[in-house]
Amino acid sequence: MIALDANGADGGPAVVADGAKRSGEQVLLFGPKDELGGSGAEVVDAPERIAGDDEPVRAVRSRPDASIVQAARAVAEGRAEALVSAGSTGPTLAAATLAIKRLRGVHRPAIAALLPLPTGPVLLLDAGANTEVRPEHLVQFAYMGAAFMEAVVGSKRPRVGLLSVGREAAKGTPDVLAARQRLEDGPLDFAGNVEGFDLTAGTVDVVVTDGFTGNVALKVAEGASRTVREAIRQRVRSGGPLALLGGLLIRGPVARLRVELDPERVGGALLLGLRRPVVIAHGSFGPGGISAAVRLARRAVDERMVERTHAALETAGALRSVPAGSVATNG
């Protein structure tokens, strides 16, 4: 059973309900009951939503009947196996982290954005959950990302890169340098530093960075893609008969490429590092994207993504621990 917050999508709860139906999965829908009829799914009447501009932790704590809070609680209590939301990221992050909780030994959950690329999907994390990180957070993100790519995407041995300002080992902030040292000594297929253009070049499967940089990088990539697509379209339209003919000739391959690169195909981002899978669908998704998000959550459960993540962290010695001898004793 997948818990699905039906509030927050740009198209309204009916779009989410349609997506749930298309997924073919067992879904527990949380949203306004009068707008979710006919979905075929079990519905919990939860008309209250938390907007993106509400302070997330305060809002989640003070509004226990909000749809995202109820949906997260259903997962925490075992009534559902994973959470999917197309609402604002802040409240989803707060509700999921407080209710579902961090996986034992994980410092910080990370938002992991799966980028559909011609060379194959690339995972970028953290894409916005933690603006300030320590080296041990970056190390954990690397293992969490690799475990996801193995379990859910099916990569045999994902190649992991650490985003920096140059490929050379000495390039990067002190935190990046410290994380690099630890990753080089570990069992991952670690590519070392990667640069911004590696994000879309297919040279690695997982790109690790702090949430501030990751969020900026993600939006630059999305914005650049959109700008280039629009520019091509405009030039073809305004380029005269030959340009139009050329546009027609490549229409088929371009249409197929557009489908391959469509973010709705991958289903959204994941919140990695919690005790159950959480998928954050984009608010602009239509029913197809919501359906993909639900199926992504289902796959994460079926492939035991959480258990495999914990095992990978444990094997690598990357789980959080309180340093021995640092805790005060009685007397």
């Binding site: 034992r104 309180v322 640092s326 805790v327 005060a328 004793t329 009685n330």
Partner: peptide
């Protein structure tokens, strides 16, 4: 994941328990 007996009144959240 700390022993309860190791947590005292004066235990500091940040410095001792990180």
């Amino acid at each position: 994941e700390v022993e309860p007996s190791a947590i005292a009144e004066e235990t500091r959240f940040r410095e001792d328990l990180e």
